[in-house]
C-alpha cells in the first residue's frame, strides 16, 4: 500500500486513490483536425517508462481531485505530486528518495 501525497489533502493511503495512466496526454483541441495517425497516438500510444514517470492519480475516495505525480517505477517512490494543469516540477539532480 503506497502513501500518496495528495496536493490538497496531504499524504494518504493508496486505497483512497485511483490511478489514471500517463499524465500530460492532451486531448487535441480540435479533434476534427487531427489526422488518423495523430488520433491513434492520442488514443493508444503510451510510454512504459522505467524510472521517473509522470502519471495521473485521482483522490477518488478523498477530495475527488485529479492530480499528477512523478513516480520512480523501479522503486515505487514518489518524487513529487502537483495539481492538474501545472507543469511537472524540476527534480534536483540525482533525484530524491
Amino acid at each position: 500500500m503506497l502513501i500518496i501525497d495528495c496536493p490538497y489533502c496531504g499524504p494518504r493511503p493508496e486505497p483512497e486513490f485511483a490511478h489514471g495512466g500517463q499524465a500530460h496526454v492532451a486531448r487535441p483541441a480540435d479533434p476534427s483536425q487531427a489526422t488518423d495517425q495523430e488520433w491513434l497516438e492520442f488514443l493508444y500510444l503510451r510510454h512504459n517508462t522505467r524510472g521517473v514517470f509522470a502519471e495521473r492519480w485521482r483522490h477518488a475516495r478523498g477530495c475527488g481531485r485529479f492530480f499528477n505525480a512523478l513516480r520512480d517505477t523501479t522503486t515505487d517512490h514518489f518524487l513529487a505530486t502537483y495539481r492538474a494543469g501545472e507543469k511537472p516540477p524540476v527534480l534536483p539532480a540525482g533525484g530524491a528518495r
Partner: peptide, 13 residues
C-alpha cells in the same frame, strides 16, 4: 461519474 469528473477537472476547465 469518474469519467465526468475527469473531463470537468482536466479537459474542459
Amino acid at each position: 461519474f469518474g469519467m465526468m469528473e475527469d473531463y470537468i477537472q482536466t479537459e474542459w476547465t
